[in-house]
Amino acid sequence: MAETEIEFDTAGITKKFMYVNRKAPYGTIYALEVLEAVLISAAFEQHACIVFIDDGVYQIKKGQNTDAVNMKNFSKTYGIIAMEKEDADEDEDMDMVWRIIVEKESMEARGLTADDFVIDVEVIASTELAAIMAEQEIVISG
């Protein structure tokens, strides 16, 4: 690359990131590209809430079959988020808390339960979720 990489000093800073997934997994690219952003961010050991709301709850629905639409089924990749969360939970030296949250109203409106998802989630009502959102320092949505 022609130009020099610019780096900022982020050592020792831990912030609260929230990633808000609002859209169905296929039909637009937002779900896939938010997922990529979340996975890369893990290396920075920041706090993160990964939230599924509206049609975004379909992103982690079990049993996706994308053959007919010829799209890559990336639902298994959410398992990596769950693994990152587990690693952070188990490592006492790591100051990194990840939460995976599904908004209750969005889930129920679509006839889903917590058992329908490919990863373990916290189901949280919208009023409480709003309070959690207000505590965040960086909110990225797609």
């Binding site: 690359m1 900022f8 000093d9 912030k15 952003a37 890369i40 961010s41 920075f44 990225i140």
Partner: peptide
């Protein structure tokens, strides 16, 4: 790189997380 406009550079997604950490506000 071949069709990258002047003034821009191409880099990884980590640069997004990094500026989120370093800046006072990330505006989307």
């Amino acid at each position: 790189e071949d069709n990258l406009a002047d003034g821009f550079r191409i880099s990884g997604l980590g640069q997004l997380t990094e500026v989120g950490i370093a800046a006072d506000r990330l505006v989307v």
